[in-house]
Nucleic acid binder design. Structure first.
Lengths: 341, 341
DNA sequence: CCGAGCAACCCAAACGTTTGCGCTTGATTA
DNA sequence: TAATCAAGCGCAAACGTTTGGGTTGCTCGG
């Protein structure tokens, strides 16, 4: 058990105070405590290390950073952590980072440009070694600004042309959802399209619409409703779709949360999810399978994306050449589309 | 290893480089850029500030912390951010902290003691000004260690005797759920009890069982299954309950995610959620209301808890006297218990 | 006209680390 | 036996900031 000897008497325990206790120079302590203790006798190293442990020494991160210029921290920007998809990605990021001896600091930007800027400023002034951006949007001028700082970064979840990114193939995902519904005989469908400034929303929707169009059933614009990525946004969009003069027989939602909102709207319209209105989600969160009506969803490897983004970033930090990755999505068919049609 | 070789022409912009540009002393720049620029002429302040902005100056957090000993950072420990309840609390924390000029850094500890310790170590070596702990458990020896560091902290979501905490009244919440089911005529019920080392799990379960016992229908131990707080854990626990010789007519789940797992198990057992098996959740997440069968749930004010924990911590930092808070939960009755019984 | 008072600014010492360099030892080698 | 050498350690200079205490000038009341 590590127990500090004089908790209140002695101030914070630093290299200097350890050195005093051990009767050696402060710099010797520093070396002894470093990963490769070169130029210090083995028994001295051992003595100093146990002493440091007993005194409850913790290296001061601020001083370390100030001296070395490196923080072993990577900054992460996400729209919202209450979105389980992003939280899962972040979990993958944090895991991989921890394993590599890095720590992460995350910030919610809520798809708000002002917040993005201030969060970015914060992370940069905290001198993160690199950044992982989960909230990139088309038409933002933050990326060029960021490039000027020379701090390496990778995008995750959402793409931007010309930037290194780790995503799933969202066009393909949209296509999978569309083909599934076409096979089941759906001809008129609605889309809860998410935010068109996010590549996820834009590409999933595009893949979906293109496939229906190619099959001879182009989807009219009024059947495609933009939304955010949350339950309530999904609900609102679905309500609009359900009020259309000719009701569709299926709705494709941009992610599982909006799909749940869609389910609620369908239910309150007096329709049975699955048999009377097919619903398809995206991401295949854990809960999709367990819903009272199992949700058909396009599975994307979220944790893996997170981990991969970290590995890519670390490679960049080492000056290696890196490339973007687009992982393959898979459709998981369940009761929300398969029930007795 | 190559050392301190700066790739860009212009080095990092510091107080010194601004001072050189402005033709004043570095300390004058520091004062001009501080919140209350005392002892610097108004026009000098203006000149320096615009210059700093033009050069893209960002105060170095490490140096600032090293000098002042304060970081304006608060550390947050949660079990998992993929648990929407915790993510929502964290969102409240981050909001309130940002408004107060503080930043947060969060870490997932997964209810793992080793991880808790290492995350705590990390946050302390980053010199956070204070801590908010969302993952406290009975029987852990981390709290006494933490107290020795003199870093102030508050618990959120889960309580521990003798510690400042911001929670909802979980015993009361359990009671609300029980009374609701009793009123509907349920006599034999199952409980997915969560983790008994977390006060949430223990107290919600206790409030629920006590109420049933008082009503004359004590719940046998084999109808109470411990679990984690996630979808799969809920599903597994429910499967065990459904295999009991005498099947209950209702299941109380420790939170909404486990409740969804319960719903999946009930569905796959060939039963209708609501009419054939009542299900009650806890937290009333956004999605509870929108599920194909609306989930009856005990609402707890998550965002508010997060904000309150920050306010409490900031009061502690100012040396004020603070007290624990237990917010009141409210039952939201929906189809998962109300459907035609 | 002279010192007091004051505004505006400069100086330098910290904060806790890391790290190149130089100084002792004692042992090895020519 | 003396020159060489490496191991083991001490010394001191940074890193960028804040801040208590000078040091200038200047104004102004007596």
């Amino acid at each position: 058990m590590p127990v500090s000897k004089h908790p209140s008497r002695t101030g914070p325990v630093t290299l200097a105070s350890i050195a005093a206790h051990a009767g050696v120079h402060l710099s010797t302590v520093s070396r002894a405590l470093s990963a490769q203790p070169d130029g210090v006798g083995p028994e001295t190293v051992e003595r100093i290390r146990t002493l440091a442990h007993e005194l409850g020494y913790r290296r001061d991160a601020a001083a370390h950073t100030l001296r070395t210029g490196r923080t072993r921290m990577i900054g992460v920007l996400v729209p919202r952590l209450t979105d389980v998809a992003l939280a899962t990605i972040y979990e993958g990021i944090d895991q991989a980072a921890t394993r590599a001896g890095y720590n992460t600091v995350v910030a919610n930007t809520r798809d708000d440009v002002e917040l993005q800027r201030s969060c970015l400023d914060l992370l940069l002034s905290r001198r993160v070694d690199g950044l992982i951006l989960g909230d990139s949007r088309t038409g933002s001028n933050l990326i060029p600004e960021l490039q000027r700082t020379q701090v390496p970064f990778v995008l995750v979840m959402r793409r931007l042309p010309g930037q290194i990114s780790i995503t799933t193939d969202d066009v393909e995902g949209g296509r999978l959802a569309a083909e599934h519904l076409l096979e089941l005989g759906h001809k008129r469908v609605g889309v809860v399209a998410g935010d068109p400034s996010a590549s996820t929303g834009a590409e999933r929707t595009r893949g979906f619409r293109d496939t229906f169009a190619k099959a001879g059933f182009p989807i009219p614009d009024e059947y495609v409703i933009d939304s955010d990525f949350h339950v309530r946004g999904g609900r609102r969009a679905a309500e609009r779709i359900l009020r259309l003069p000719v009701r569709p027989s299926a709705i494709f939602a941009i992610n599982d949360f909006t799909a749940i909102g869609v389910m609620g709207a369908v239910r309150d319209a007096g329709l049975q999810v699955g048999s009377e209105m097919a619903v398809v989600g995206y991401n295949d969160l854990d809960l999709a399978e367990q819903l009272p009506v199992g949700l058909t969803s396009v599975r994307s490897p979220l944790t893996e994306m997170g981990e991969l983004s970290v590995h890519t970033l670390l490679d960049m930090l080492q000056g290696k050449k890196v490339r973007s990755r687009r992982l393959r999505p898979v459709l998981m068919a369940r009761a929300s589309t398969l029930n007795s049609r």
